[in-house]
Design a protein around this nucleic acid. Structure first.
Lengths: 213, 213
DNA sequence: CCGGATCCTCGGTGATACTG
DNA sequence: CAGTATCACCGAGGATCCGG
């Protein structure tokens, strides 16, 4: 028996042989947000060596999870994007993200928040059953990271950057986690300055209900 | 920045720091079936070095996912079992197992099937919506591995070993995957000898409908 | 600048032997 | 049975360099 195989005839261990390597699922997480160039991925994965990123991308490509595509003119640059097979990893990523969010405490020294990780976090905590009949657009600022969420009756579209018709703009600190976990009431969060909002303050309560840890 | 941390304030990357190590999720998968002793885990994870197993168990224990418990008399031996927090990983494990099962082709040379992996596979492929109104007990043999599934109206209880009141006993080969994936009809599977059954043969069609890749 | 390739170091993994 | 000890080795981490 040789390298990196688990020696079991089993879908789960076969899956781990493909996406169980260090950094692999983080790359998939970022690509779930959208196609990205090598440098975009590199910047979104603080600390990854470029050779490891290149190696993982090649492995994921060989496994049929990622495709390498040359953009049309004028950029002519290269983007990596998920195949349909790769997109199917979303439920796994969301499930693990939700599991991890429950135990997320305070940021450790040097930890950053990236656009893609924040979008995945919002997708992980989204509760369709709590969003029935809800039509609302949020813009969420976390440091200099900006994402937006459009909630439409049980469906969520989350993406990078601002949104023009936001019903509520939220400027969050790490304390927003306490609000989403139900440990701090929305009015109290605004009162204490943990969260600053622009728009109808009552929409924050709905936010905390729709995106719940 | 040092060892094994991803440097992101994000539930998903924090989760990977805990269960992203090699072998870790396989240990969790086996423990999801039930508490196990060190040697049981060792036998269920072909190829794992004992020091790695010991290290992972300690890490999972430190992370609050596993508890080490001393059995009461007369064995006095030690079992490892999941905490409530550890059990919450089931949806992630099932999601990844389902994803991997879709791409499972033929067994590679030297690959084995373990009891725990088979139970997880059955849990992953179970479709509650197809099991409405179904009350049936299956016993599944795969080589010398035997598991059972009791389906009761949208719920599944799967465990190790035989079951006394089985409605259908299935003796499967790797070709059973084709049946579960809808690539081979149940009668054809019996005809070709890919699957041998004891009991009402028509129950195999229901089996293939309830457990679907 | 982008998309890597190369080199080197170090720690974790894998395999085996050994012990309470 | 339940691990610990030892050691070779490979891949991750970190920096630098290179072709388009």
């Amino acid at each position: 028996m040789s390298k990196r195989v688990y020696g079991q005839f089993c879908g789960f261990s076969r899956a781990l042989e493909v996406v169980g390597e260090r950094w692999a699922l983080l790359i998939v997480r970022d690509l779930l947000v959208g196609p990205q160039r090598f440098t975009d991925l590199f910047r979104g994965l603080p600390g990854i060596p470029t050779n490891v990123l290149a190696a993982r991308l090649r492995e994921l490509e060989d496994a049929g999870i990622v495709v390498r595509r040359v953009l049309p003119r004028p950029e002519g640059s290269i983007v990596y994007e998920l195949t349909a097979r790769g997109e199917e990893l979303e439920e796994t990523v969301v499930a693990l993200g939700r599991w991890g969010a429950k135990a997320l405490d305070a940021p450790r020294c040097g930890e950053v928040v990236t656009v893609d990780s924040l979008i995945t976090a919002m997708r992980s905590t989204f509760r369709p059953e709590a969003a029935c009949g809800v039509h609302c657009a949020y813009e969420l600022h976390f440091g200099d990271v900006v994402v937006h969420m459009r909630v439409d009756d049980g469906t969520l579209v989350a993406g990078a950057g601002p949104i023009d018709d936001a019903d509520l703009v939220i400027e969050a600190s790490p304390a927003i986690k306490a609000v989403m976990a139900g440990e701090m009431s929305p009015p109290q969060a605004i009162e204490s300055g943990a969260v600053r909002v622009t728009g109808d303050e009552r929409l924050l309560a709905r936010f905390a209900d729709v995106f719940r840890i």
